[in-house]
């Protein structure tokens, strides 16, 4: 479904992604793990096209020079030069980190806005699905999104991405700053979304809570792929265990 080949991204002279290749098969949930500054967000933003957007904006004002090279294929089609909005139409939807919602709009308006590119009837169906997935949101429908707690905002952010009817959902640190209970809720949602036939690429720092839902995982470090494999394989790798799962080897 998604094929990333030899992806290189430079922010000015700093290398963010170094010759990164990965693939996601239809219906899979794939995790990308790495510490801060490993390049997770850059990877997801580049797939969603935001880096492309940033590159052109920076170029216009003579700021940072961003270099993007490599291939990104979605459903067999090369999309490196496709604009971000077009990528959403094709079905690549990014749920950005730190749950950026439209603070002054109600939850319902937020969700509607998320599905702006889709038909009205589709939006209704998806919104019903979102309210089913996150029952608290149905209760908070009319509330301003800025008034919600961090966990509820994360639900809204995921909901917005869902209403856009993704084929491939990119989730950038969906567990960031959430309580363990809320993390469980999000992990449950990931499982539900997957049942709808949505392919998911998920970036996380702390891999432990999401390991049960992923089919395969990639570990990246300084923009380079270090290890890849199924969840169980990653768990078996002692270095990965220590770094990303918080399991110290007992002697």
């Amino acid at each position: 479904m998604l094929e990333v080949k030899n992806l290189i991204v430079f922010y000015e002279n700093a290398l963010a992604l170094n010759d990164l290749s990965l693939s996601v098969q239809p219906g899979e949930v794939v995790g990308v793990f790495g510490s801060n500054s490993a390049g997770k967000t850059t990877l997801l933003n580049t797939i969603a096209g935001l880096t492309w957007h940033l590159k052109h904006r920076e170029l216009r004002k003579g700021g940072q020079r961003i270099t993007i090279a490599g291939e990104i294929k979605f459903a067999g089609e090369e999309i490196s030069a496709v604009k971000p909005a077009e990528r959403v139409k094709k079905g690549i939807v990014l749920c950005r980190e730190r749950h950026p919602v439209f603070r002054d709009n109600s939850v319902e308006e937020n969700l509607r806005l998320g599905g702006y590119m889709r038909k009205g009837s589709e939006i209704k169906v998806m919104m019903e699905f979102v309210y089913e997935l996150f029952p608290p949101l149905a209760r908070l429908k009319r509330k301003k999104a800025g008034m919600l707690s961090g966990g509820e905002q994360e639900m809204v952010a995921i909901g917005m991405a869902l209403v856009a009817r993704p084929k491939l959902l990119l989730m950038d640190e969906p567990l960031l700053g959430l309580s363990p209970a809320m993390q469980k809720e999000v992990v449950r949602a990931v499982r539900e979304i997957r049942k709808q036939g949505v392919t998911i690429l998920l970036a996380e720092q702390y891999a432990r809570p999401v390991i049960p839902v992923i089919d395969r995982g990639y570990v990246i470090e300084n923009g380079t792929l270090v290890v890849s494999g199924t969840g169980a394989e990653l768990l078996d790798n002692p270095e990965v265990r220590a770094a990303y799962f918080g399991i110290e080897e007992s002697r």
Binding site: Y11, E12, N13, A14, L15, A16, S37, G39, Q64, N222
Partner: peptide
């Protein structure tokens, strides 16, 4: 890759 990048500096 320039030296700064090799040292793992992301600068962003």
């Amino acid at each position: 890759v320039s030296n700064g990048a090799r040292a793992g500096f992301k600068g962003y």
